[in-house]
């Protein structure tokens, strides 16, 4: 199935349960390929659940869901192989070094391990840290290492849950650049954050959810994929 023919994400009345609690209670959301979309909402609104559902980690109890052209009802495994999720946990092994962790996840994704040093460098992790066990890293350095594991994989859909958490100013700038680069490369980015002012610089579309439902969607009409936006700007300049 060609993802170019489908929205990157298409949820219609999506319901997902955490135990018996409907964390998503009929969420409808469409995201086009190449869009950078911020999900905001109060604690417990369902932001993390929405990201995990789109990652194919949660079961769609009812409603309809397509991610990258794959049906969430019966093809979650195909979804999982094409997305990159940065959640609250980093997925790193504390007793392995920074480089070993990124190499392991690169190999586990059948990605090119030769890109590991450049990915670590891109995330601002100097060479002296590469051979350090993850247990000796700060929370921010762990977060950067986790982002490096996503970068080597180059997913088509980035799902970032509070990507700026625990990062210093330099780290936050790097995340912003990472998101911009991913969008320029044609990837779609869906990120949940409470830092609205910061994310406003990288996302022109903001969706608001509360109680597991969409309650606001600003910029949807004007927001265009970054690459398309650049083309438009170039056309206007001419």
């Amino acid at each position: 199935m060609n993802p170019a023919n489908h929205p990157a994400i298409q949820l219609v009345d999506a319901v997902s349960l955490l135990g018996r609690f409907p964390a998503l209670a009929g969420l409808s959301l469409t995201v086009q390929p190449g869009e950078v979309v911020l999900i905001q909402g109060p604690n417990g609104a369902g932001k993390t659940t929405a990201l995990r559902l789109c990652a194919g980690l949660l079961r769609l109890e009812s409603g309809h869901g397509l991610v990258l052209g794959h049906n969430l009802a019966n093809d979650r495994r195909s979804v999982r192989r094409r997305v990159g999720l940065l959640g609250h946990a980093t997925g790193l092994y504390e007793d392995l070094t920074v480089a070993e962790n990124v190499e392991f996840w690169a190999k586990a994704s059948h990605a090119d391990v030769k890109t590991v040093p450049s990915a670590l460098s891109h995330l601002g992790l100097p060479a002296r840290l590469h051979d350090l066990q993850v247990r000796r890293l700060s929370a921010g350095q762990r977060r950067r290492t986790a982002l490096a594991t996503l970068l080597v994989r180059r997913p088509e859909l980035w799902l970032l849950d509070e990507p700026h958490a625990a990062l210093d100013q330099e780290g936050r700038d790097i995340v912003d650049q990472l998101v911009a680069d991913a969008a320029d490369a044609g990837a779609t980015v869906l990120l949940a954050s409470h830092e609205l002012e910061r994310v406003a610089g990288i996302s022109r579309r903001v969706v608001t959810i509360a109680g597991g439902r969409l309650v606001g969607d600003t910029g949807a009409d004007t927001a265009k994929p970054t690459g398309q936006r650049d083309q438009d700007q170039a056309r206007n300049a001419r």
């Binding site: 194919g56 980690l57 996840w105 586990a108």
Partner: peptide
């Protein structure tokens, strides 16, 4: 415990393994 301490088991699901 190795897989669950920081969400690695979930990452395995998201990998190509």
């Amino acid at each position: 415990a190795i897989e669950t301490s920081d969400g690695a088991q979930e990452r395995i699901l998201l990998s190509d393994l």
